[in-house]
């Protein structure tokens, strides 16, 4: 009788274990797509100062400052600056000026100062410095008065 009880108990335990083993699992799938994104937040505009020889009006000159932009991207975009087309010069300045916009970046992407387009392949955030230099050649000089220029920083 004792042997029967032992055998019955063991059989019952195995049956219970079988039931536990029959429990099923089901995966729940989550999908997500991150599309190419780029955010530009202008922190500050730049300031240009004139050089001692009056032939350079630039944010690189002493006392000048670059504009700053915070860029955040998923990657898969490119960064560039457009040639300067919108300027305001004093009436006394009637000579030609060559404007050269450039940018550099530090952070997720290390970009040395350039005027060319840069592909941003990896995600991350950067601090972009935007510089502008106006130059006059020959005997031409910058005149007394207010200058204003607009640099377009593009992320696409």
């Amino acid at each position: 009788m004792t042997l029967f009880r032992t055998a019955f108990g063991a059989a019952l335990l195995v049956a219970c274990l079988d039931h536990a083993a029959m429990a099923t699992t089901q995966n729940v799938i989550f999908n997500g797509t991150v599309t190419a994104t780029c955010t530009l937040v202008v922190g500050s505009n730049g300031t240009m100062t004139v050089s001692p020889d009056l032939q350079s009006l630039s944010s690189h000159n002493s006392g000048g400052s670059a504009g700053t932009v915070t860029l955040t991207t998923t990657g898969g975009v490119s960064l560039s600056v457009d040639p300067v087309t919108t300027t305001t010069v004093p009436a006394a300045d009637s000579t030609a000026t060559t404007w050269t916009p450039t940018y550099s970046a530090s952070g997720a992407h290390a970009i040395a100062e350039t005027a060319s387009s840069t592909a941003l392949t990896v995600p991350g955030a950067d601090l972009v410095s935007v510089n502008l230099a106006g130059t006059k050649s020959g005997s031409n000089r910058f005149a007394n008065g207010n200058y204003q220029a607009t640099v377009t920083l593009r992320c696409e």
Binding site: T39, N45, T47, T152, L153, R154
Partner: peptide, 24 residues
């Protein structure tokens, strides 16, 4: 085509930055 969102968040300063985001 490129569809671009443009803004000059801080106008009326010496060197303005126009932020341009373009989608293709």
């Amino acid at each position: 085509v490129r569809i671009c969102t443009e803004s000059i968040p801080f106008p009326n300063q010496q060197t303005q930055i126009r932020a341009q985001i373009c989608g293709k």
